[in-house]
Every structure is written in structure tokens, then in C-alpha cells.
Design a protein around this nucleic acid. Sequence first.
DNA 1: GTCATAGGCAACTTGGAGGTTGCTTATGAA
DNA 2: TTCATAAGCAACCTCCAAGTTGCCTATGAC
Lengths: 113, 113
Amino acid sequence: MSAHQSELIAAEAAPIFAALGDTTRLSLLSRLNDGQPRSVVQLTAGTGLTRQGVRKHLGVLEAVGLVMRERVGRESRFVYQPTGIETAKQHLERASAQWDNAIERLKRRLEGD
Amino acid sequence: MSAHQSELIAAEAAPIFAALGDTTRLSLLSRLNDGQPRSVVQLTAGTGLTRQGVRKHLGVLEAVGLVMRERVGRESRFVYQPTGIETAKQHLERASAQWDNAIERLKRRLEGD
DNA sequence: GTCATAGGCAACTTGGAGGTTGCTTATGAA
DNA sequence: TTCATAAGCAACCTCCAAGTTGCCTATGAC
């Protein structure tokens, strides 16, 4: 992967990580993770928050592409969207790889050129 | 993995994601990613922020275990710590796996029991 | 021993995140 | 057609995160 592409992934990864950095949103996502669309009221149940509060969290998830909204009748259904998580995973995997690489080089140097 | 363990990973993943959800910190991390310890002044260079500002970001990264601090003489050296990224990666991988599973089940059901 | 450098710590400012209440509109059910 | 339900929207509150300035301390260099 080019350095340019790396920068791009990093730039788009930060907002995704930020969206994931909240227990409420993480929990909402894990509930939507089964692929089933759910309405706002459904998703509000069990959170201890108001409908509007949950709606804001869903807005954040939607803004970074982690979920999608579809209007059905008077309901707003939210659906899990796998691409966002995939982007985040790629970023972390690249970080892991760079780290492994650095360690490997360090080891070789220690073991005597 | 047990449901209990899942909950634990989720609970400790959120603060890590939050720490990663900032471009400055993401960039600091990627610079430390090569395993080389770096002082605060070194890490400040190129950020456009003050030393104290950068120091705060490093404090956040340290608080969630993404980096470690070691005092050497009058310097504070910060070192990359791979375990945090590993935890975050595990969480995302679990999410991906659940998703794949759900899709697979859906497909089987559609293809006619 | 003196001076420059690295860093810690505290106080302060500001914008936005997370949450609420209150009101209005659309749609489904009876 | 009337009423209950789902949701949107706006205004507001509160608190913390991000960043700054300013000052003090410790350590290395000369």
C-alpha cells in the first residue's frame, strides 16, 4: 500500500474510532450487528436514555457510515453497515504489521547482523 | 469466547477507541509505531501544537495503555505498547465475525431451508 | 557554578458532546 | 375520523476535552 493511501485511511479512520469510543454507541452497534433493521424506539429500549438521546447517537453512527437509515412508514429503521468497521480494522492491522516489522528488524540487528 | 468475556472486551475497548478517535493522537501513535522511544519535544515537532498540548495527548494514550512512559534523566520517553491495539483489533474482528455469521444464516434461509 | 533545556503542574478559555424537555408533524389503528 | 404512536426539530443545560499561557523544578552541558 502506498504512503498516500495510508494517510487517507488514517484520515478517515479517526472519525470512525471516535464514533466507536462511546459505550452507548458500541452497544447499539453490537445490537444491530445481526443485520436486522431496528426502529428508534426499539433501539431506545434498555439504554436508560431518552429517544432523542439515542437518536443523536444513531446520527453519529450514520454520519461516519457505520449504520444506514431507511424510512419505512412512520418508522426510521437503522441497519448495520459493515464497511466502516472494515476500514477501522484495516487501519489497526496496518499498525500491527508495522510493529511486527519493526520488532523483526530489531531482533535481527540484535542477533548480530 | 464466552458472553462474559465479550462484555469485558467491549467495556475496555471503548476508551481505547476514544483515544484513537483523534487525528493528533493517531499520528503520534503511528510515529511511535516503530518501537523507538521518543521524548516530548521530539514528538511535539511537526504537530503545530505546544509541548503541553502534545503532552496531554500522550497522557491520554498512556492512560489507556497504548503507550508507556519512562523517565530517563530529564527526559520523558514515550514507547509504543502493542497490547492496546491488539484489544481493539480483537473487538473489531469479533464484530466482523458476528456479521459474517448473520449474513451466512440469512443466505441459507433465503436459499430455502 | 551558571545557563540552557526538558519537563511537570496549575489555571484558564472555549467549543462541542451528550443529554434533556417541549413542541410539531406524519402515519397507522380502531 | 379520531386517537395513539413514531419520529423530527429546536432550544437549552452541563460538563469535559483540547488547547493555551505562565511559572517552577530538575538535569545536562560548558
